[in-house]
Computed example of a mutant assay.
Amino acid sequence: MTSTDSSALLLSRQLKDLQKNPVDGFSAGLVGDNIYQWEIMVMGAPDTLYEGGFFKALMTFPSTYPIMPPTLKFASEMYHPNVYPDGTVCISILHPPGDDKYGYEQANERWSPVHTVETILLSVISMLSSPNDESPANIEAAKEYREDYPQFKKKVQRLVRRSADML
Rank of each mutant, 00 (worst) to 15 (best):
T2W: 02
T4G: 01
L10N: 05
L10R: 13
S12G: 08
K20C: 12
P22L: 03
V23L: 02
D24Q: 07
S27W: 06
G29F: 03
G29W: 01
G32A: 06
G32M: 06
D33K: 05
N34W: 05
E39V: 10
M41Q: 08
M43G: 10
M43T: 09
A45Y: 03
P46G: 04
P46S: 06
T48I: 05
Y50K: 00
A57L: 06
M59L: 05
T60P: 11
Y65L: 11
M68C: 10
T71H: 04
S76W: 08
S76F: 07
S76E: 08
M78R: 01
Y84L: 14
D86G: 10
T88Y: 05
C90E: 06
I91Y: 03
G98M: 11
K101T: 15
Y102A: 11
Y104S: 00
E105S: 00
Q106N: 14
A107C: 07
N108M: 12
E109F: 09
E109A: 08
S112N: 13
P113Q: 02
L121E: 09
L121K: 00
L121Y: 10
V124I: 08
V124H: 00
I125V: 13
S126R: 07
M127F: 07
L128W: 10
S130E: 11
D133V: 12
D133R: 03
E134P: 03
E144R: 04
D148T: 11
Y149L: 13
K155S: 15
V156I: 14
R158F: 15
S163M: 14
A164K: 15
A164V: 14
